[in-house]
Design a protein around this nucleic acid. Structure first.
Lengths: 145, 145
DNA sequence: TATGATTTAATCGTACACGATATATATTAC
DNA sequence: GTAATATATATCGTGTACGATTAAATCATA
């Protein structure tokens, strides 16, 4: 019987470490652009769909306003995005890409793709991991208790 | 050709999200004990090997002193661990489990195991994911550039 | 239409996480 | 034996991340 209470055998730790590695890897790519890794995720979301409310953005990224509000504020200060309070419903704040974010999109995503490719991850491996992680998340979210 | 520049198709995001789910799940278990998830990882490491230096602990957990020093200080304030500067080499600080951490080990790990089991993760799935994540980490760490 | 409930963001407090710097102790070279 | 170097930890500044609270706007309904 294997000992499951060791650090090495913890799935949670493997995921935690892998997230840390991704963070480091992406940070090294994004630093020159003056972006952090979570800020890049915000741009990814906005490149897909521009002009979403803070709440919608939070739902896409699984982040609350306590995280997003200051983060978007910093991104606005760095000319990546712009906040605009809705006229129809003044509770809502829409987030829009700034020119800089549109202009630099190609250059940023190219650099990211280049570094990811340098890791030599097989497509099959990539997709299988995605699928398994999604299945795992589903189980964690849907568990009773 | 699939679009790889969407949030949904990013492996980094899947890992980031899964780490977040684990964090939430473990937080819900550990809160009653007055522990955070990273603090639980520290205990896991010390339950395996007690009396290690801060540096060694950092190597096990992939954390620097900028993270560990304040964290261990908090854990000391809550009677989980004790710091003791080495007599032989006063640069080193050894971290020891306190009685509380030894006494509550079973009760904490039981509760964690119980919740993990409630997620219905198959052993095969668990081990395959571990193996794949470790392989991925290796690739990210060993990449050239 | 007044009021109570809901929704949306902002704010606050706590806790990581990291890179850079500082400081004190050990080790090495000479 | 002293100067240069290396090592171990602490501290600082910035940036997430989260839960709880607050505040303002909107909605529901009596």
């Amino acid at each position: 019987m294997k000992d499951f209470m060791t650090l090495k055998n913890q799935l949670c730790f493997a995921v935690y470490e892998t997230a840390g590695e991704f963070n480091k890897l992406y940070t090294s790519v994004l630093q020159p652009f003056g972006l952090t890794y979570p800020q890049y995720l915000v741009l990814l979301a906005l490149w897909e769909q521009d002009g979403v409310t803070l709440k919608e953005l939070g739902e896409k990224l699984n982040l609350g306003t306590g995280t997003l509000t200051p983060m978007v504020t910093r991104m606005e200060a760095n000319d990546w995005v712009k906040k605009q309070r809705s006229k129809e419903d003044e509770r809502k704040v829409y987030i829009y890409l700034q020119d800089k974010a549109v202009e630099e999109k190609q250059s940023i995503t190219n650099k990211v793709a280049e570094v990811i490719q340098s890791c030599q991850i097989e497509l099959e491996e990539y997709e299988q991991l995605m699928q398994q992680l999604n299945a795992l998340q589903k189980k964690m979210r849907e568990r009773k208790i």
